[in-house]
């Protein structure tokens, strides 16, 4: 499917449809269309914007409750101060916003498609099925969550009196990106599961719940928990490592390992997706 031909920009002149081969401009255009569709739908429900704003504030406050209860009586936990833990929490809120805004919404659309059989139409389109499935739906108002998380992050850093230098900022961003890739890989595996067990309408809840552990600095978890959350479901990596990077506590090797891990996870997820697709096209009637 990945044809090695050079990218031809879509020329509007020739009516004999100058069809660009399946390369970046094509997929960028496709993404733009999908985004525009979701945004148009979101615009129809303008009241949702306010509702989402209220919900963002609600959950932001809610997320702070355990932190406040804990640090009311304790100065630090496993070497993490209140402000440092706040940075991790802020990362969590930001990534959660991206998860619920850009990744999870498509899940509902896909599961619905598989159940109604309309997924066949996705397979009939000459674009990569994974791409179509991943961009099926967005919830643009969740950007407010991300903004809230950023605000919290800034607040925590200010309270700490620590301004990350350029290197730390870059590392933090890269690791947040790696975390995103990791989350997406998990999401893709969950979607692949939907092929086998058709009635999984509550999958979106699963992903959100599993992500729960990423609120806390990884160091907080001991023993088996630590192993699970670092290697099996590397949730600790997703939020803690970017925090460590921003705070200047991360060493290069660990950071690189995390990025490599994210890439490996993405590859595994893609392989599982293709397996699921192969299974679907053999087994469905």
């Amino acid at each position: 499917m990945a044809s090695p031909s050079t990218a031809t920009p879509a020329s509007p002149a020739s009516p004999a449809a100058a069809r660009p081969r399946r390369r970046l401009p094509y997929y960028a255009g496709l993404l733009a269309v999908q985004l525009r569709t979701s945004l148009t739908t979101a615009m129809q429900y303008r009241a949702d914007f306010l509702v989402q704003g209220a919900m963002s504030l609600y959950w932001l406050g809610w997320n702070l409750v355990p932190l406040l209860v804990l640090f009311d009586h304790r100065a630090s936990v496993a070497g993490w101060s209140f402000e440092a833990a706040l940075v991790v929490m802020a990362n969590f809120v930001i990534l959660r916003g991206i998860l619920e805004g850009a990744i999870n919404p498509s899940l509902g659309a896909v599961v619905e498609q598989i159940r109604s059989g309309a997924f066949d139409y996705t397979l009939l389109r000459p674009a990569d099925a994974q791409f179509l499935v991943s961009t099926a739906r967005f919830a643009p108002w969740r950007a407010l969550d991300v903004l809230g998380g950023l605000a919290l992050l800034v607040y925590a850093l200010v309270r700490l009196g620590h301004v990350p230098d350029l290197g730390q900022l870059a590392a933090g961003l890269v690791l947040l990106g790696a975390g995103l890739v990791l989350m997406y890989a998990l999401w893709l595996i969950v979607v692949a599961a939907a092929f086998w067990v058709v009635r999984l309408d509550n999958l979106a809840f699963l992903l959100s719940s599993v992500f729960d552990a990423a609120r806390w600095p990884a160091a907080v978890f001991r023993g088996t928990w630590r192993v699970i959350f670092t290697f099996v479901l590397p949730l600790a990596v997703i939020t803690t490592m970017p925090a460590e990077a921003l705070l200047g506590r991360l060493d290069l090797t660990t950071g690189l390992a995390a990025v490599a891990g994210a890439a490996v996870a993405a590859a595994i997820a893609r392989a599982i997706w293709r397996l699921a697709l192969r299974n679907y096209t053999s087994a469905s009637s």
Partner: peptide, 28 residues
């Protein structure tokens, strides 16, 4: 028995999607 049109949106949105998916020249 199954439809490809997006349910909550007008058919024109599905047409826009297909236009992009099939790489069709907009004028054509």
């Amino acid at each position: 028995q199954k439809q490809q049109l997006l349910w909550d949106l007008p058919p024109s949105e599905t047409y826009a999607l297909n236009r992009a998916v099939f790489g069709l020249d907009p004028a054509a």
